[in-house]
């Protein structure tokens, strides 16, 4: 069983975002980066499957981006992936989902991956396109927004999350791609021995130029904060004082304090 996991590195979402000098994406100054949360579920699911199947499973983890993304690859290796692939690109934020998917597809072609795991979306761009597009380009069966996963000899049964909390249960033959949603599993923390072991695992580099022959189909023309809908009051200060002020407001504006 050959497994590919595609991961992205994104900024901590608690950060304050400011436009970069071109005004089309965020400035990276002062931002701390980590593995995209949805991709952690993808890594965990792949590693969980390998534990079930034993050493016959081999997991490749791939990431496109500047040198810092090697940190995310190392984390995935420490969680249990077998080998890493880094496709260096300092300007990956300027590539549209079509280009990213095209590069992943070119990398995957002819490698015979039975299963590909991706996050359902990235936390920063949030387009929810790349995984599904890769499946379409490779001709793989695909289910998105997966919150349940079971491997059954030659096929997978997955649960897709629906609005309202219900789920759709579907079966797919291999090769298949699933995009992973919050709730699928609880990603493990890499242990110290596994972090040490991961240092010996191979991280190879593939040049983007060899893989990407496609131009963009869409472009980001500006990046900006949402227009404030207004009306809200912002209160700061000592907590006891804030509690008093809030009670005063609630007495005035609502009927719940009677």
């Amino acid at each position: 069983m050959k497994i590919l996991v595609c991961i992205k590195q994104v900024p901590d979402m608690e950060s304050r975002f400011k436009p970069d000098s071109q005004g089309t994406w965020f400035s990276e100054a002062d931002l701390a980066f980590r593995m995209n949360e949805y991709d952690e579920y993808a890594v965990e699911q792949a590693v969980g499957l390998k534990e079930l199947l034993g050493d016959s499973a081999d997991i490749t983890v791939l990431s496109i981006g500047p040198d810092r993304v090697v940190e995310a690859i190392k984390k995935a290796l420490a969680m249990g992936c077998d080998r890493g692939v880094h496709i260096p690109d300092a300007a990956v934020h300027g590539k549209d989902p079509w280009q990213v998917a095209s590069a992943i597809t070119a990398f995957s072609q002819g490698k015979g991956f039975d299963l590909i795991f991706t996050g359902m979306q990235s936390q920063d761009r949030g387009s929810a396109q790349v995984g599904i597009t890769v499946a379409e380009l490779l001709g793989y069966a695909c289910a998105s927004t997966v919150v349940g996963f079971e491997y059954l000899e030659g096929s997978v049964v997955v649960r897709r999350e629906l609005e309202g909390g219900g789920k759709a249960v579907v079966r797919m033959p291999l090769p298949a791609l699933v995009t992973c949603q919050l709730g699928l599993n609880v990603p493990r923390y890499p242990t110290l021995p596994n972090i040490m072991k991961a240092k010996k695992k191979e991280i190879s580099t593939v040049s983007l130029g060899e893989l990407l022959k496609e131009g963009p189909l869409a472009e980001t023309t500006s990046f900006y904060p949402p227009a404030k809908s207004g009306g809200g009051i912002i209160l700061e200060g000592d907590v006891a004082e804030l509690a008093d002020r809030l009670i005063g407001i609630l007495k005035e504006k609502t009927t719940v304090m009677r």
Binding site: T24, D124, G126, A218, T220, S222, P225
Partner: peptide
């Protein structure tokens, strides 16, 4: 929306 709905961007199809 982007960045967990904290920011916005304008996307133009090519």
């Amino acid at each position: 929306g982007c960045c967990n709905a904290k920011m916005r961007r304008t996307v133009k199809p090519s």
